[in-house]
Simulated scan of single mutants.
Amino acid sequence: MLRWPIAILIVVNVLAFVALRGAFGPSTTSRGREPNYLTRQIHPDWLKVRPVSAADASDQAVVGGPAPQAPISTSELPE
């Protein structure tokens, strides 16, 4: 009863293996996904990478540290 589904799965696996090896032509992952991406960039040399200063990092959460307290003032509600 399970002979045919197992045989079909083996044939499909062999076909997938052969297809990934390039028997049916180059795979779609062998070439770039966006071949024109680099040619479409406008002034890529203007991009500068700089370290984050202490002033810029003050609002960043510290990984593994306690959660920062929100600067919220509270008061009692009138009854």
Rank of each mutant, 00 (worst) to 15 (best):
G22K: 10
Q69D: 03
N13C: 12
A16F: 09
P68L: 11
A55M: 11
A70D: 03
Q69M: 06
T28S: 13
V12I: 06
D59P: 13
T74D: 02
A54E: 15
A57N: 14
E76T: 05
Q41M: 07
I8P: 02
Y37C: 11
H43A: 11
I42G: 00
V14T: 05
L2Y: 05
I42Y: 13
S73E: 12
A57L: 10
T39A: 09
E79C: 10
P68Q: 12
A19M: 07
P71M: 09
L77P: 10
P68C: 12
Y37W: 10
P51D: 00
P5W: 02
R50Q: 06
A61W: 08
G64T: 10
T74F: 14
K48C: 04
P5V: 08
G32C: 08
V62L: 13
P51I: 01
P68N: 10
V12C: 04
R21H: 12
Q41W: 00
S58A: 14
G64P: 12
L47W: 02
L38D: 08
E76G: 04
R31V: 15
V11F: 08
L38R: 12
S27F: 05
P44R: 11
G64Q: 10
R21V: 14
A23N: 02
F24S: 03
L47N: 09
A54F: 14
S30I: 11
L20I: 15
P71L: 09
V14P: 00
W46L: 04
P78R: 08
A7Q: 01
E76H: 02
L77D: 02
R50E: 09
Q69F: 06
S30L: 10
L15V: 07
F24D: 06
R3T: 12
S58R: 15
P51V: 00
R21F: 11
P68Y: 12
R33L: 07
G22P: 04
G25L: 08
L38K: 11
H43W: 04
S53L: 03
S58C: 11
A7G: 05
A54Q: 14
G32D: 04
W4F: 00
I10Q: 00
P66Y: 13
Q69T: 09
V63D: 11
Q60T: 11
L9P: 01
Q41I: 03
